[in-house]
Design a binder for these strands. Sequence first.
DNA 1: TTTCTCACA
DNA 2: TGTGAGAA
Length: 135
Amino acid sequence: MSDGSLYTVTELAKQLGMTPRAIRFYEDKGLITPQRAGTTRVFSARDRARMILILRGKRLGFSLSAIKEYLDLYDTDVTQHAQLKLLAAGVARRRAQLLAQRQAIDEALAELDDIAAQTEAALQSPAPRARRAAG
DNA sequence: TTTCTCACA
DNA sequence: TGTGAGAA
């Protein structure tokens, strides 16, 4: 079912475009648990697939702990029902978050456009005289 | 080379 | 959420 491909940290890091340091960091956080040959890490094809899922989760803006929570269910949950529920909930939350950000960005852009228009208009009109000191 | 730990942003 | 440095 699974090939017997094995990788070192550096190999896997290179393949996935990340640093070995980051992989060890994820292991430290419990997201991956590679085998050991003595003290050196040995990554299986399964670890590799898992790492790819981690990267995807990151790319979509999920926290490492959220990703871990989801991945942990993969091993325990036979039917994957709980896993799917968690994923659906996470996706909905993240989606709402991104929509809110888009809204905020749109508002900021609109406001900046207003300022740009105002400054542009001010630059077109004659320069104001220096203000006299009151008195 | 790889690992671990501590400091740092 | 990572990186860099130092020691083993």
